[in-house]
Design a protein around this nucleic acid. Structure first.
Length: 244
DNA sequence: TCCAATGTTTCGCC
DNA sequence: GGGCGAAACATTGG
């Protein structure tokens, strides 16, 4: 479910609840439900993979993690972690996710320019952040939420393949022009991901992720668990350049 | 039936 | 105390 583009879809799905009052909030999540009960939703935002349901002085942060899901005016068989009830019997349920209340001003908590889906996204700032991590592997940089908030394992694999950068490349050794390309392509691919996901055709556009053969060279992809998070990484030794 | 997976945090060990 | 790895969380499809 959950890379940045999927969160944009979620945000759009619950946008109609903006301005509506939460009559009741419950679920098995550990949360001070009374903090939002009776309050009106002022805005729905996202930051990368975070969904932010905003109230006047407080925000509910929902992170879908790996298996999270949601339903609007529908129930799943399992108990929701968070359930928000509105007038006319309307409700939103969140399952298997991470829920947290944020009391601080969101502008102090979040760097909006890091969110690849945001109009405030800044490629220039991303470049500066890459510069600060010369020893970081490319495969880790593409998953770093402070640099590319909203990028996940699919986006990572596809962007590295598209830009022909080997996942084990060291950021500091990648030529400046290529670093800029990496940044631009991450932003571009995220929006293609969004359109394909909306149409239900995302999978058929994967060129590297979960693929066995390189579509350029027709040789087998390597599949390795790389980086700090030991995440599945698919790459081609022939066309993806190792900068080291 | 079993395994792995679009994610992140926390805990224990060295 | 930093860095690393395993565990935890919890669901679904192949």
């Amino acid at each position: 479910m959950p890379e940045g583009p999927s969160l944009v879809i979620l945000k759009e799905a619950i946008a109609p609840f903006k301005g509506k009052k939460v009559l009741a909030a419950d679920g098995y999540g550990k949360l001070d439900f009374s903090a939002i009960k009776g309050k009106k939703i002022t805005d729905i935002k996202t930051w990368g993979k975070h969904l932010l349901i905003c109230f006047k002085d407080i925000t509910v942060r929902v992170h879908l993690m790996m298996f999270g899901s949601y339903r609007i005016n529908e129930q799943k068989k399992t108990n929701p972690k968070l359930s928000l009830h509105f007038a006319k019997g309307e409700f939103i349920n969140f399952y298997a996710c991470n829920i947290k209340l944020i009391e601080e001003d969101l502008d102090e908590v979040y760097d909006w320019s890091a969110d690849i889906m945001s109009p405030h996204w800044s490629g220039v700032k991303a470049l500066k952040k890459l510069k600060a991590h010369p020893d970081m592997l490319a495969t880790d940089a593409l998953l770093d939420q402070d640099i590319f908030s909203g990028s996940g394992n699919i986006i990572k694999n596809e962007v590295l393949f598209r830009t022909r950068v080997h996942p084990k490349s060291l950021i500091g050794e990648i030529p400046l022009k290529k670093q800029k390309e990496l940044i631009a392509e991450t932003h571009k691919y995220a929006f293609e991901f969004l359109e394909w996901k909306k149409k239900g055709v995302l999978k058929r556009h994967w060129e590297a992720y979960a693929k066995k053969t390189c579509p350029r060279d027709k040789v087998p992809f390597h599949k390795e668990y790389l980086g700090a998070g030991k995440r599945r990484t698919f790459f081609c030794d022939m066309c993806q350049v190792l900068y080291k």
